[in-house]
Design a protein around this nucleic acid. Sequence first.
DNA 1: TCAAACAGAACATCGTTAGTTACATGAAAC
DNA 2: GTTTCATGTAACTAACGATGTTCTGTTTGA
Lengths: 147, 147
Amino acid sequence: MKRDSRLSSVLHALLHMAEQDGPVTSETLAQCLGTNPVVVRRTMGYLREAGIVTSDRGHAGGWRIHADLGSVTLRQLHEALGEPVVFAVGNRNEIPECLVEQSVNAALQGTFAEAEALLLKRFSEITLADLAADFSRRHAAARRKRS
Amino acid sequence: MKRDSRLSSVLHALLHMAEQDGPVTSETLAQCLGTNPVVVRRTMGYLREAGIVTSDRGHAGGWRIHADLGSVTLRQLHEALGEPVVFAVGNRNEIPECLVEQSVNAALQGTFAEAEALLLKRFSEITLADLAADFSRRHAAARRKRS
DNA sequence: TCAAACAGAACATCGTTAGTTACATGAAAC
DNA sequence: GTTTCATGTAACTAACGATGTTCTGTTTGA
């Protein structure tokens, strides 16, 4: 299964942007992510629509975070990306006539719903500020190790 | 994202088999599932390797359940299918050098691991017998409704 | 005016399940 | 023993959606 890594991508991009003062170009972010500027624009476009970032064209243009780091949760980002399907596994037929399949679906659906609810709950508890703080700790630890 | 529906499929097939006395052919199961006999053989083959079902060729051949319904859990079936990836969402790069990405990965990975653990725990609590009982209830309810 | 940057369309790539076709193999019935 | 019914397996196609790429606009500031 090919996994959707857009949430991972935008988090990575947002934290790099948080480290910078001015706007960051798609080109720069693409290098950080090891991908293409067009992919960055496409993905970040979702966040722009959600009002989480802004983009400016022309000279000195690029992407800026348009929100407080502490107020943006992973859940919001997940929603901004269109709430992509979380599970790579699912029911064969969503609205089956067969009673046997209905039993199967009910059991699986309930279980998946429970797991997804937990995932989204955790997502709503983690902010960009949390990740930035975690990065600072790792950064400091890496510096200590180097010296 | 294309979802893996093999667990759903084998559950559907197994419950149909549980309703039958003798062996059930791939052709019959394929009709129940609305698919192709070859797909049935391919998928059920995993369960045969795990010792959950047996298959016989030739006249009066087909598939049989080779275990007690109460002793087979969804988790075992999931494992028999090769423990397919559960999430359609994931990290962009599993072993990043970038410290920023490491922070992102750590947060996401922890959250996904927690949700997956819950899912597998629930899977290990549900047996084929549970699903068969649920089907019986639905079947009885449908009969009452019809009369 | 020019160059830097985003905007967006259009198309290729890739990985995986699912679907299909074809043929071989084995077992029971006649 | 031949026929028929079934699985076993290989090989190929289809579908799907994120990702990657190319190309052409369009806006903005120097």
